[in-house]
Design a protein around this nucleic acid. Sequence first.
DNA 1: CCCAATATACCGGATTTCCGGTATTGCGCC
DNA 2: GGCGCAATACCGGAAATCCGGTATATTGGG
Lengths: 216, 216
Amino acid sequence: MIENSRIPVWIIDDNKGFCFILSEALNLSGTIECQRCYQSCKSALLALTSEESPPSVILLDIKMPKMSGLDAITSIKTLTPATQIIMLTSYDLDENIRTAVSRGASGYLLKSSTPSDIINAIEKVQKGGSPLDPMITKRMMEAFLAQRSVENRYDLTSREKDILECLASDLTVQEVASKLSLSYFTVDTHIKNIYQKLDVHNRHGLVTKASKERLI
Amino acid sequence: MIENSRIPVWIIDDNKGFCFILSEALNLSGTIECQRCYQSCKSALLALTSEESPPSVILLDIKMPKMSGLDAITSIKTLTPATQIIMLTSYDLDENIRTAVSRGASGYLLKSSTPSDIINAIEKVQKGGSPLDPMITKRMMEAFLAQRSVENRYDLTSREKDILECLASDLTVQEVASKLSLSYFTVDTHIKNIYQKLDVHNRHGLVTKASKERLI
DNA sequence: CCCAATATACCGGATTTCCGGTATTGCGCC
DNA sequence: GGCGCAATACCGGAAATCCGGTATATTGGG
């Protein structure tokens, strides 16, 4: 069963030379068997529909003539859902990454990766992981941080967030006070503090800012 | 050239009986030649990849085992972009319609359509039209209307829209007045009218409502 | 030509918000 | 134990908003 334990992999990339070299490298690893290389999505999809044993992992380029690798993801995932897809491409545009991940790609590597990076990624994905290029990881972290909600961005306390919530949903100070079982004055104080933190000076400015920067 | 002028059509629907009947009906029309029926997307896609002469029009069901007709649209449009797709399905969920149209379907009929409806639709799509079930058309109109922006939905006058714009961007009544070269009282009057139309009673309520329903 | 709608403008009183104070309690941390 | 911070609470005056009036000029359509 030693040869059966090797992970079956296909490569879809219109660069024939790249396919060949990578294929050789993968096979040298001992744990991976690169079975096929396709230069177009169409031929690969055709093989997937007729093939009785789909690969465990597909390495997929984005920029290819005719059908883009991004579009191929959906088709592959529909035809053979169990096949894991790792994008292996030169393009690191945020939009491409988002699209790939949302369509079902499990990993995203850049072509600047070394063969051993790719081998690691294939093994990782086989274990249910999501291998990402370190550069991509960094970018995702940044995006994640950038998405911090207003409250966090402005260091609002949890109580202040409660108040903000109420203020956004059209209640008077008095109403907020009863809703949260607080004194009118307490709410007033909180509001003053929120205004200071968000650098606004009235209710509509607050709502506008909060809704602009997402939240509410 | 008489037989060549007939429009080549395929049907993809897992209901074999339905395919057969419809196929007969289409062929009786004289203008249409129903060449193939497929009971699954997979077999149809396979045929499309190998076939040298794809059909002009495909009638496509949504609910099918394995691959949904909705998912097939993308693949068909990639493989043979010139092929027009008409959805022919029992499902009239808005979400399905949106998906189908966004993925490239040209028409959307319900299975309650008569054979002559379907024949008309095929001929219409061949001429570059977008045949839609009357029911669907109605629904789309409603959605279109529902998408009217707040101002339109609430019949705001153009001046009121100006004011609303300013109010949303954190200005006091006084500031709005100078910005638009109006008297404080005029702006105040407009605001009263806007409040009445939008059924709110204060600035933050207005901003909240406006931003919730898009705008700003 | 008149009417309805729109835009403009004004008044005054009630209500709400804004803001700068002050103050107490509790909690975690050095 | 003291310090800082968060949460609670209160006061009062200034400012802004809300609202129900009233009123005039313009304009487009029947």
